[in-house]
């Protein structure tokens, strides 16, 4: 196995990488706002509604992502809903992202010192204004590093989408493997592709974490 051939394998996996990033990007773009809504609903909404939200979050967190993928792609057709692979993938990933992010957002909001809310109330700021101008900005600073960490994990999990025929990195790698019979180098190439994104991204998160910690 010479280096040139190996880099050839890496190159062939790159289109799959683009698909993986698209899938991840869409899931985060839908999942994070949804998580914010869930987090607020759990604390604010009245009884029956807030149980529904809690159930949605607990299922999204407690059921393996692989099973969620299957539910959308192979499960829904039983009741005559047949989503495309991409739609099923985005739905499953969004559900998963939103469920984990909801916990992060909730605990970030709780981490804002109580005195802040008191000072805002004491000044006569309404609940909505207190939340918007005082609590949320501070909660956001706390939530950003863990949410970025979640994004990186979701990117890694995009590898699962291959089971429902999405042509991301793993799918391409598998076909490449069956074509060349050089499974080991091919999958190591796939590993390298993921690592080349994940390792710099993690370093970025760490440095952002350090910068955010300086301000408050």
């Amino acid at each position: 196995m010479d280096i040139q051939t190996w880099f050839g394998y890496v190159f062939e996996l790159l289109p799959g990488l683009v698909t993986a990033m698209q899938l991840t990007g869409m899931s985060l773009a839908l999942g994070f706002p949804l998580a914010l809504a869930f987090a607020l609903l759990i604390d604010i909404a009245p009884r029956p509604l807030n149980w529904v939200v809690i159930a949605v979050v607990e299922v999204g967190r407690g059921v393996p992502l692989l099973v969620l993928l299957y539910i959308f792609y192979q499960g829904l057709p039983q009741i005559d809903i047949v989503p495309s692979a991409m739609v099923a993938a985005v739905a499953a990933f969004t559900w998963s992202t939103a469920s984990y992010a909801t916990e992060t957002i909730r605990s970030s909001i709780q981490s804002v010192p109580r005195g802040q809310l008191e000072a805002a109330s004491a000044a006569g700021l309404s609940g909505i204004d207190s939340f918007r101008f005082v609590i949320m900005p501070q909660a956001a600073r706390i939530a950003i590093p863990p949410l970025m960490g979640l994004a990186i994990i979701m990117f890694q999990l995009s590898s699962l989408a291959y089971v429902i025929t999405i042509s991301e990195v793993m799918q391409s790698a598998y076909f490449l493997g069956t074509k060349t019979f050089n499974y080991l180098p091919v999958f190591l190439a796939a590993a390298a592709v993921y690592a080349s994104i994940t390792i710099p991204a993690s370093a970025l998160v760490t440095s952002i974490e350090r910068r955010l910690a300086r301000h408050v």
Binding site: Q156, S158, S159, L160, A173, A191, Y194, A195, T198, S202
Partner: peptide, 11 residues
Amino acid sequence: RSVPPLVWLFV
């Protein structure tokens, strides 16, 4: 940690 578990499984 930087590589998805699925990839390691296949490797």
